[in-house]
Design a protein around this nucleic acid. Structure first.
Lengths: 207, 207
DNA sequence: ACATCTTTTGGCACTGAGTGCCAAAGTCTG
DNA sequence: CAGACTTTGGCACTCAGTGCCAAAAGATGT
């Protein structure tokens, strides 16, 4: 569903639109990386793709969204999975499993783009925030979904569980990208394993 | 230090500047709440305070900062505390204690402003993100500081500890504000107690 | 192949956030 | 009160993002 079975089976119109969208995201990531996020305007990107600025902003609501398309793919897929898949067992464990499944189902090229995005974010304070945006809205929707599906009424505990999961994700993706993103998504999953297995002892962590 | 012993002891120039800053933040919070964040321009705020837009942006880097001045106060004080105070015992426990200390040391009026800010954020998707920004940059700086002070070299575990603390904070402040912010900061602290004491069992939370 | 309906695009003018610059005003020091 | 220093105002500017509508292009039925 998120792999890439979408190229030749769609009506021409949608195929073109999708191609434009990808060209925009790819070009943006490249230009932002080469010249810097702040020193690249949205017009630059639109020009390079030979598309009007208006079209760019119909595909991506903000410049940040344009830069973080890879993140959006991940979390969209995550929410899709959560809204359709089964939810049994401990919440944190379920969410963790879902992340793994989503990760392995993503586009071939996703690793590279995601890592490049991390580098870009690390170099761009203004973007730093928006990396969290996906996490935040995803948390909200995940909480709603999990509450509905499991009947867990304890809002505080449930939200805490989701937030802790995201904390683990966040930490893992950071350490992974700081290490240069070794071994693609398999490496990322290793860092996730590390983070999740570190969780139980975190409260006791002391100098 | 963050109470309010700053009114009559400062040179006139700084006193005025501080007053302008506060007027801007207060007026902004009021106008944003009354008319809505998106339907209030920065010029509106500047006009109301009878100050040029240029001055507004010398005091607050962005419109978001203007709206979330209360958050900034909290986290600035938190970082100050962390950079000067002692750091012994379990990291999460220390950070928790620091939050409590900072909370009790804040301005009289802080409760009201913070709660109003939460309501504003809840009503404004665009702001939703920036509430996390303080958390994020605070996490980074806190990690650095704690690492330096305790000699904890395990970046992953340390960051995880800080992130989990912030997750608890975030959850608590949300449930507190959703409950209408009962009992001011004492109520907030109760929610924090709840969140922190729920942490150990969160990994096992299941339907 | 053609007319028609629908979706997408381009281009333009506009709002609003945020910045650089410099002169004017205000504050501080002696 | 003079001169140093800081803050402010105002203007012109860049750039992100939007509303609008006409033109282009794909889809559909005959």
């Amino acid at each position: 569903m998120y792999a890439e079975p979408d190229l030749r089976e769609l009506p021409l119109r949608e195929r073109k639109k999708l191609r434009t969208r990808r060209a925009l995201a790819d070009t943006a990531l490249r230009l932002f990386t080469e010249r810097g996020y702040d020193r690249t305007t949205c017009d630059d990107v639109a020009d390079e793709v030979e598309v009007s600025k208006r079209t760019l902003f119909r595909n991506f609501a903000t410049k940040e969204d344009l830069a973080m398309a890879a993140d959006a793919e991940l979390w969209d897929a995550f929410l899709d999975e959560i809204e359709t898949g089964p939810l049994t067992g401990p919440v944190v464990e379920t969410l963790r499993r879902t992340i793994y499944e989503v990760l392995t189902g993503l586009d071939e090229d996703w690793d590279r783009r995601f890592l490049a995005t991390r580098a870009l974010v690390a170099a761009t304070p203004a973007l730093h925030v928006h990396g969290l945006r996906f996490c935040a809205t995803t948390i909200d929707r995940a909480v709603t979904r999990v509450a509905a599906a499991t009947g867990l009424a304890d809002g505080l505990r449930l939200r805490l569980a989701v937030e802790v999961t995201i904390a683990a994700w966040h930490t893992a993706s950071l350490t992974w990208s700081e290490a240069g993103g070794p071994d693609g998504r398999r490496g990322l999953i290793r860092h996730l394993d590390e983070a999740f297995s570190a969780l139980p002892d975190v409260l006791a962590l002391a100098p």
